[in-house]
Amino acid sequence: MQACKNKPQSKTVNSSLQCEHDENSSWELFDLIEMQTEFALCQSMAGSKTLAIMFCLRVMGYGGFILFLLKMAS
């Protein structure tokens, strides 16, 4: 958890960069969401075209393999 260094002067929050919580409190929900594997994958894919292409090819490959197995089973 990262402590917030820039506290606003008023109690209203105008942007996501400002924070109004104490040093003792935490953003539990955001921390839980940020720890999810899918969240990290989406962040990485947003920054890397190569990873996004590799992920799409892998999903299509798995889908094709499943369709192949279903066709062979019927």
Rank of each mutant, 00 (worst) to 15 (best):
Q2F: 12
Q2D: 14
A3G: 10
A3I: 11
N6M: 11
K7T: 09
P8H: 04
S10V: 12
S10N: 13
K11Y: 07
K11I: 11
K11C: 09
T12D: 14
V13F: 02
N14L: 13
N14K: 14
N14H: 14
S15C: 12
S15Q: 02
S16K: 03
S16M: 08
Q18P: 00
Q18H: 04
Q18N: 08
C19L: 00
D22W: 07
E23I: 03
E23D: 14
N24S: 15
N24C: 12
S26E: 11
S26H: 06
S26L: 05
W27C: 13
E28R: 04
L29H: 06
F30P: 02
I33S: 03
I33T: 05
E34V: 02
M35L: 02
Q36R: 10
T37P: 02
E38T: 05
E38V: 06
F39L: 05
A40E: 12
C42R: 15
C42M: 15
Q43H: 08
Q43F: 08
Q43N: 14
Q43M: 09
Q43R: 15
S44N: 02
M45T: 00
A46Q: 06
A46T: 04
G47C: 03
S48F: 01
S48R: 01
K49D: 10
T50I: 08
T50K: 03
L51T: 11
A52Q: 05
I53C: 10
M54S: 12
M54C: 09
M54F: 01
M54V: 13
F55L: 00
C56M: 13
C56R: 15
L57W: 04
L57I: 05
R58I: 03
R58P: 00
V59I: 11
M60D: 07
G61T: 06
G61R: 05
G61S: 15
G61F: 06
Y62V: 03
G63N: 11
F65K: 04
I66F: 08
L67S: 14
F68E: 05
L69M: 11
K71W: 07
M72E: 06
M72N: 06
A73N: 15
S74Q: 11
